[in-house]
């Protein structure tokens, strides 16, 4: 049985699959997938998550709005959040971090880098 649950929010099925593959390398972690910010909020309302990994550029509700919503949610306001995006500039990184993200990974992602960040945030 998994000790930690992670919500992966990504509109691209192939990126989502790649993230799930990467997170599956970490023992004691279960992964739930969401296609966009709204889908993520529905899933956050129905369960308790220990980590959220979200893309920024998504339809319906983007990752930055999702971070704001999570930080104002009583149940998940302290959950660690990793932002994943194609944007590599310092300004974008600062914007995401200012909204309350805990870490920032740029695409194309490297699974070992994702694993390391997740382990750091979950203190594994």
């Amino acid at each position: 049985m998994a000790d930690f649950s992670c919500l992966v929010v990504e509109d691209s099925p192939m990126m989502r699959q790649l993230l799930v593959f990467a997170l599956a390398r970490i023992k004691r972690i279960s992964v739930t997938e969401a296609e966009d910010g709204v889908d993520a909020l529905r899933k956050l309302a129905g369960a308790r998550f220990d980590l959220v990994v979200t893309d920024i550029n998504m339809p319906i509700m983007d990752g930055l709005k999702l971070v704001k919503r999570i930080r104002s949610d009583e149940t998940h306001k302290d959950v660690p959040i990793i932002i994943i995006t194609t944007e590599g500039s310092t300004e974008d990184r600062q914007r995401a971090m200012a909204l309350g993200a805990n870490a920032y990974i740029t695409k194309p992602i490297q699974a070992p880098q994702v694993i390391q960040k997740v382990k750091e945030l979950l203190q594994l």
Partner: peptide
């Protein structure tokens, strides 16, 4: 881990 990541990339590319 890097090889697994690379293989996952190739699998996903081929699959999709």
């Amino acid at each position: 881990e890097q090889e697994l990541h690379d293989l996952a990339n190739l699998y996903i590319a081929s699959h999709h």
